[in-house]
Protein backbone atom coordinates (compact mmCIF):
# COMPACT_ATOMS: atom_id res chain seq x y z
CA UNK A 1 0.00 0.00 0.00
CA UNK A 2 2.89 2.25 0.85
CA UNK A 3 4.23 1.87 -2.66
CA UNK A 4 0.95 2.78 -4.16
CA UNK A 5 0.84 5.98 -2.13
CA UNK A 6 4.36 6.78 -3.31
CA UNK A 7 3.23 6.28 -6.86
CA UNK A 8 0.34 8.65 -6.36
CA UNK A 9 2.52 11.37 -4.90
CA UNK A 10 5.02 10.96 -7.72
CA UNK A 11 2.22 11.37 -10.22
CA UNK A 12 0.93 14.46 -8.42
CA UNK A 13 4.39 16.00 -8.37
CA UNK A 14 4.80 15.36 -12.07
CA UNK A 15 1.46 16.95 -12.83
CA UNK A 16 2.44 20.02 -10.85
CA UNK A 17 5.60 20.43 -12.91
CA UNK A 18 3.71 19.88 -16.13
CA UNK A 19 1.12 22.56 -15.42
CA UNK A 20 3.26 25.34 -13.98
CA UNK A 21 5.96 25.52 -16.63
CA UNK A 22 4.36 28.14 -18.87
CA UNK A 23 5.33 31.41 -17.21
CA UNK A 24 7.04 33.57 -19.81
CA UNK A 25 10.42 34.93 -18.77
CA UNK A 26 13.59 35.62 -20.72
CA UNK A 27 13.70 33.65 -24.01
CA UNK A 28 14.93 30.93 -24.13
CA UNK A 29 14.31 29.20 -20.86
CA UNK A 30 14.27 25.63 -22.19
CA UNK A 31 15.64 23.64 -25.17
CA UNK A 32 14.44 24.73 -28.60
CA UNK A 33 12.90 22.24 -30.99
CA UNK A 34 13.98 22.37 -34.62
CA UNK A 35 11.74 20.19 -36.74
CA UNK A 36 13.37 18.75 -39.84
CA UNK A 37 10.55 17.24 -41.92
CA UNK A 38 12.86 14.66 -43.50
CA UNK A 39 14.56 11.49 -42.31
CA UNK A 40 17.89 11.53 -40.47
CA UNK A 41 20.96 11.61 -42.71
CA UNK A 42 19.58 13.64 -45.64
CA UNK A 43 20.96 17.02 -46.71
CA UNK A 44 18.40 19.07 -44.72
CA UNK A 45 19.08 16.97 -41.66
CA UNK A 46 22.82 17.55 -42.08
CA UNK A 47 22.29 21.29 -42.37
CA UNK A 48 20.16 21.26 -39.21
CA UNK A 49 22.74 19.30 -37.29
CA UNK A 50 25.62 21.49 -38.41
CA UNK A 51 23.70 24.60 -37.30
CA UNK A 52 22.86 22.81 -34.05
CA UNK A 53 26.55 22.04 -33.49
CA UNK A 54 27.48 25.62 -34.46
CA UNK A 55 25.05 27.11 -31.95
CA UNK A 56 26.49 24.86 -29.27
CA UNK A 57 30.09 25.64 -30.26
CA UNK A 58 29.56 29.42 -30.29
CA UNK A 59 27.49 29.27 -27.08
CA UNK A 60 24.93 31.47 -28.80
CA UNK A 61 22.07 30.10 -26.69
CA UNK A 62 21.96 29.04 -23.05
CA UNK A 63 19.86 25.96 -23.95
CA UNK A 64 20.52 23.32 -26.60
CA UNK A 65 18.65 22.96 -29.88
CA UNK A 66 17.09 19.50 -30.29
CA UNK A 67 16.46 18.21 -33.78
CA UNK A 68 13.23 16.33 -34.39
CA UNK A 69 13.19 14.39 -37.64
CA UNK A 70 9.63 13.95 -38.81
CA UNK A 71 9.64 11.33 -41.55
CA UNK A 72 7.02 10.46 -44.11
CA UNK A 73 6.10 13.30 -46.44
CA UNK A 74 7.63 16.72 -45.67
CA UNK A 75 4.16 18.25 -45.42
CA UNK A 76 3.57 16.39 -42.14
CA UNK A 77 6.45 17.99 -40.26
CA UNK A 78 5.82 21.38 -41.87
CA UNK A 79 2.18 21.33 -40.87
CA UNK A 80 3.10 20.33 -37.37
CA UNK A 81 5.20 23.48 -36.97
CA UNK A 82 2.50 25.60 -38.60
CA UNK A 83 -0.02 24.36 -36.03
CA UNK A 84 2.42 24.35 -33.10
CA UNK A 85 2.03 26.71 -30.18
CA UNK A 86 3.80 29.98 -31.20
CA UNK A 87 5.74 30.07 -27.94
CA UNK A 88 9.17 30.56 -29.48
CA UNK A 89 10.33 26.97 -29.00
CA UNK A 90 9.22 25.42 -32.28
CA UNK A 91 11.06 26.01 -35.53
CA UNK A 92 11.09 24.42 -38.96
CA UNK A 93 13.96 23.81 -41.37
CA UNK A 94 12.82 23.33 -44.96
CA UNK A 95 13.68 24.37 -48.52
CA UNK A 96 12.16 25.05 -51.92
CA UNK A 97 10.04 21.89 -51.72
CA UNK A 98 7.58 23.88 -49.61
CA UNK A 99 6.90 26.28 -52.49
CA UNK A 100 6.89 23.45 -54.99
CA UNK A 101 4.19 21.63 -53.05
CA UNK A 102 2.15 24.78 -52.64
CA UNK A 103 2.40 25.73 -56.30
CA UNK A 104 1.51 22.28 -57.61
CA UNK A 105 -1.49 22.01 -55.30
CA UNK A 106 -0.08 19.11 -53.32
CA UNK A 107 -0.24 21.24 -50.15
CA UNK A 108 -3.10 23.41 -48.96
CA UNK A 109 -0.76 25.76 -47.10
CA UNK A 110 2.52 27.47 -47.91
CA UNK A 111 5.37 29.75 -46.98
CA UNK A 112 3.09 32.66 -46.16
CA UNK A 113 1.63 30.67 -43.27
CA UNK A 114 4.95 30.84 -41.42
CA UNK A 115 7.05 33.60 -39.90
CA UNK A 116 10.44 33.69 -41.69
CA UNK A 117 13.49 33.48 -39.41
CA UNK A 118 16.61 33.04 -41.54
CA UNK A 119 17.79 31.61 -44.82
CA UNK A 120 21.27 30.16 -45.28
CA UNK A 121 23.47 27.92 -47.42
CA UNK A 122 22.57 28.51 -51.06
CA UNK A 123 23.35 25.93 -53.74
CA UNK A 124 22.39 25.80 -57.42
CA UNK A 125 21.99 23.06 -60.01
CA UNK A 126 23.87 21.79 -63.04
CA UNK A 127 22.28 20.16 -66.08
CA UNK A 128 24.16 16.92 -66.73
CA UNK A 129 24.51 14.70 -69.80
CA UNK A 130 26.57 11.64 -70.67
CA UNK A 131 30.02 12.24 -72.11
CA UNK A 132 29.20 10.00 -75.08
CA UNK A 133 25.94 11.83 -75.83
CA UNK A 134 27.49 14.17 -78.42
CA UNK A 135 26.00 17.13 -76.58
CA UNK A 136 28.60 19.71 -75.62
CA UNK A 137 26.64 22.77 -74.57
CA UNK A 138 23.38 23.83 -73.01
CA UNK A 139 22.34 25.27 -76.37
CA UNK A 140 22.84 21.93 -78.13
CA UNK A 141 20.88 20.19 -75.40
CA UNK A 142 17.92 22.53 -75.68
CA UNK A 143 18.06 22.49 -79.47
CA UNK A 144 17.86 18.73 -79.44
CA UNK A 145 14.93 18.93 -77.02
CA UNK A 146 13.28 21.28 -79.50
CA UNK A 147 14.08 19.35 -82.70
CA UNK A 148 12.97 16.02 -81.24
CA UNK A 149 10.51 17.00 -78.53
CA UNK A 150 9.58 14.41 -75.89
CA UNK A 151 12.48 12.12 -76.75
CA UNK A 152 15.31 13.14 -74.41
CA UNK A 153 14.74 11.22 -71.18
CA UNK A 154 15.12 13.54 -68.20
CA UNK A 155 15.58 11.79 -64.84
CA UNK A 156 13.77 13.59 -62.02
CA UNK A 157 11.80 13.17 -58.85
CA UNK A 158 8.46 14.26 -60.23
CA UNK A 159 7.04 17.29 -58.48
CA UNK A 160 10.30 17.90 -56.61
CA UNK A 161 13.18 20.33 -57.04
CA UNK A 162 15.03 18.58 -59.87
CA UNK A 163 11.81 18.30 -61.87
CA UNK A 164 11.18 22.04 -61.49
CA UNK A 165 14.80 22.75 -62.46
CA UNK A 166 14.37 20.77 -65.66
CA UNK A 167 11.11 22.56 -66.47
CA UNK A 168 12.75 25.92 -65.92
CA UNK A 169 15.47 25.06 -68.45
CA UNK A 170 12.97 23.73 -70.94
CA UNK A 171 10.84 26.88 -70.70
CA UNK A 172 13.74 29.06 -71.92
CA UNK A 173 13.46 27.59 -75.42
CA UNK A 174 9.97 27.65 -76.93
CA UNK A 175 9.04 24.26 -78.28
CA UNK A 176 11.64 22.36 -76.31
CA UNK A 177 10.33 19.39 -74.38
CA UNK A 178 12.07 16.78 -72.26
CA UNK A 179 10.44 13.48 -71.40
CA UNK A 180 10.43 13.55 -67.61
CA UNK A 181 10.77 10.18 -65.93
CA UNK A 182 10.47 9.34 -62.25
CA UNK A 183 13.94 8.32 -61.04
CA UNK A 184 14.42 9.98 -57.65
CA UNK A 185 16.97 12.22 -55.95
CA UNK A 186 20.54 13.13 -56.85
CA UNK A 187 22.19 9.79 -56.18
CA UNK A 188 19.52 7.82 -58.02
CA UNK A 189 19.83 10.13 -61.02
CA UNK A 190 23.58 9.85 -61.02
CA UNK A 191 23.18 6.07 -61.10
CA UNK A 192 20.58 6.16 -63.88
CA UNK A 193 22.62 8.55 -66.02
CA UNK A 194 25.80 6.53 -65.50
CA UNK A 195 23.91 3.41 -66.51
CA UNK A 196 22.59 5.20 -69.64
CA UNK A 197 18.99 4.68 -68.56
CA UNK A 198 18.38 8.40 -68.81
CA UNK A 199 19.90 11.11 -71.06
CA UNK A 200 19.71 14.27 -68.94
CA UNK A 201 19.32 15.24 -65.32
CA UNK A 202 20.25 18.06 -62.95
CA UNK A 203 22.59 17.61 -59.97
CA UNK A 204 23.77 20.03 -57.33
CA UNK A 205 27.25 21.51 -57.64
CA UNK A 206 28.47 19.44 -54.70
CA UNK A 207 27.09 16.25 -56.21
CA UNK A 208 28.87 16.98 -59.49
CA UNK A 209 32.18 17.49 -57.72
CA UNK A 210 31.64 14.38 -55.68
CA UNK A 211 30.76 12.15 -58.62
CA UNK A 212 32.96 13.48 -61.41
CA UNK A 213 36.13 14.96 -59.89
CA UNK A 214 39.24 13.43 -58.36
CA UNK A 215 40.33 14.59 -54.91
CA UNK A 216 42.77 17.09 -56.40
CA UNK A 217 39.97 18.77 -58.39
CA UNK A 218 40.90 17.38 -61.79
CA UNK A 219 38.43 15.41 -63.86
CA UNK A 220 37.86 11.75 -62.99
CA UNK A 221 38.52 9.79 -66.21
CA UNK A 222 36.18 7.00 -65.04
CA UNK A 223 33.22 9.33 -64.81
CA UNK A 224 30.62 8.88 -67.57
CA UNK A 225 28.87 12.21 -67.16
CA UNK A 226 29.58 15.93 -67.52
CA UNK A 227 27.97 19.24 -66.48
CA UNK A 228 26.85 21.80 -69.09
CA UNK A 229 26.12 24.91 -67.02
CA UNK A 230 25.48 26.25 -63.54
CA UNK A 231 22.15 27.82 -62.65
CA UNK A 232 23.61 30.29 -60.11
CA UNK A 233 24.30 33.95 -60.75
CA UNK A 234 28.04 33.39 -60.30
CA UNK A 235 30.22 30.46 -61.33
CA UNK A 236 30.44 27.53 -58.89
CA UNK A 237 33.69 27.74 -56.94
CA UNK A 238 34.26 23.97 -57.12
CA UNK A 239 34.00 23.90 -60.93
CA UNK A 240 35.13 27.32 -62.20
CA UNK A 241 35.29 26.16 -65.84
CA UNK A 242 31.55 25.60 -66.08
CA UNK A 243 29.72 28.73 -67.35
CA UNK A 244 26.59 30.06 -65.70
CA UNK A 245 23.29 29.91 -67.53
CA UNK A 246 23.14 33.71 -67.58
CA UNK A 247 26.57 33.93 -69.25
CA UNK A 248 25.19 31.60 -71.92
CA UNK A 249 22.25 33.94 -72.48
CA UNK A 250 19.53 32.01 -70.67
CA UNK A 251 17.51 33.81 -68.04
CA UNK A 252 17.56 30.91 -65.59
CA UNK A 253 18.35 31.17 -61.91
CA UNK A 254 17.52 28.10 -59.91
CA UNK A 255 19.05 28.01 -56.47
CA UNK A 256 17.96 26.36 -53.25
CA UNK A 257 18.46 27.68 -49.74
CA UNK A 258 17.77 26.28 -46.32
CA UNK A 259 14.94 28.21 -44.72
CA UNK A 260 14.25 28.47 -41.02
CA UNK A 261 10.63 29.26 -40.22
CA UNK A 262 8.61 29.72 -37.03
CA UNK A 263 4.85 29.41 -36.52
CA UNK A 264 2.92 32.62 -37.24
CA UNK A 265 2.54 34.87 -34.16
CA UNK A 266 5.76 33.65 -32.57
CA UNK A 267 7.08 36.48 -30.31
CA UNK A 268 9.48 38.73 -32.21
CA UNK A 269 11.97 38.32 -29.39
CA UNK A 270 12.23 34.58 -30.08
CA UNK A 271 12.45 35.03 -33.87
CA UNK A 272 15.22 37.60 -33.59
CA UNK A 273 16.94 35.57 -30.89
CA UNK A 274 16.99 32.40 -32.95
CA UNK A 275 18.07 34.28 -36.10
CA UNK A 276 20.98 35.81 -34.17
CA UNK A 277 21.95 32.36 -32.85
CA UNK A 278 21.90 30.92 -36.39
CA UNK A 279 24.06 33.82 -37.57
CA UNK A 280 26.60 33.10 -34.85
CA UNK A 281 26.53 29.43 -35.80
CA UNK A 282 27.32 30.31 -39.42
CA UNK A 283 30.53 31.98 -38.26
CA UNK A 284 31.93 28.83 -36.63
CA UNK A 285 34.58 26.66 -38.28
CA UNK A 286 32.25 23.64 -38.18
CA UNK A 287 29.70 25.44 -40.34
CA UNK A 288 32.24 27.06 -42.67
CA UNK A 289 33.97 23.72 -43.22
CA UNK A 290 30.66 22.12 -44.06
CA UNK A 291 29.82 24.90 -46.53
CA UNK A 292 33.06 24.52 -48.41
CA UNK A 293 32.82 20.72 -48.56
CA UNK A 294 29.26 20.85 -49.85
CA UNK A 295 29.59 23.74 -52.26
CA UNK A 296 27.09 25.97 -50.44
CA UNK A 297 27.38 29.74 -50.68
CA UNK A 298 28.07 31.67 -47.48
CA UNK A 299 25.76 34.33 -46.09
CA UNK A 300 22.61 34.63 -44.06
CA UNK A 301 19.45 36.61 -44.78
CA UNK A 302 16.89 37.50 -42.10
CA UNK A 303 13.88 39.70 -41.36
CA UNK A 304 12.39 41.95 -44.06
CA UNK A 305 15.15 41.08 -46.47
CA UNK A 306 14.28 37.39 -46.24
CA UNK A 307 10.62 38.15 -46.82
CA UNK A 308 11.51 39.97 -50.07
CA UNK A 309 13.76 37.13 -51.11
CA UNK A 310 10.99 34.60 -50.47
CA UNK A 311 8.53 36.67 -52.49
CA UNK A 312 10.95 36.89 -55.42
CA UNK A 313 11.55 33.13 -55.31
CA UNK A 314 7.81 32.46 -55.15
CA UNK A 315 7.16 34.64 -58.21
CA UNK A 316 9.70 32.59 -60.16
CA UNK A 317 8.71 29.17 -58.82
CA UNK A 318 4.93 29.30 -58.78
CA UNK A 319 4.35 29.05 -62.56
CA UNK A 320 6.95 26.29 -62.81
CA UNK A 321 5.44 24.35 -59.92
CA UNK A 322 2.03 24.59 -61.54
CA UNK A 323 3.56 23.24 -64.73
CA UNK A 324 5.14 20.37 -62.77
CA UNK A 325 1.73 19.21 -61.61
CA UNK A 326 0.27 19.24 -65.12
CA UNK A 327 3.18 17.63 -66.82
Amino acid sequence: MLRFRYLLSAMAAAMLIATTGTVQAEWPEKPIKLIVPFKAGGSSDQMGRVVQAGIKESEALPHPVTIVNVGGHYSIGARRVMEAKPDGYNFLLIHLALMGGQGSGALDFGWKDFAPVASVGEFCLMPMVRKDSGIDSLEQLLDQAKDKPDSLIFGANLGAINHMGGLMLQETTPGAKFRFVQIGGGTANYTALTGAQTAVTVLSGAEVTKFTRLPDGSENPDSQIKPLAYTGSERFSGLPDVPTTQELGYDVNFCIKSWFFAPKDTPQEAIDGFAAAIEKATQTDTYQDYLVKNGFANGIVTGEEMLEELQATWDRIEPIARLAAQK
Partner: peptide, 9 residues
Protein backbone atom coordinates in the same frame (compact mmCIF):
# COMPACT_ATOMS: atom_id res chain seq x y z
CA UNK B 1 -0.33 16.09 -19.71
CA UNK B 2 1.95 13.61 -17.95
CA UNK B 3 5.60 12.89 -18.61
CA UNK B 4 6.52 9.74 -20.52
CA UNK B 5 8.36 8.18 -17.58
CA UNK B 6 5.53 8.59 -15.08
CA UNK B 7 2.89 7.37 -17.51
CA UNK B 8 4.91 4.37 -18.58
CA UNK B 9 5.64 3.46 -14.97
Amino acid sequence: KLSFGVLTF
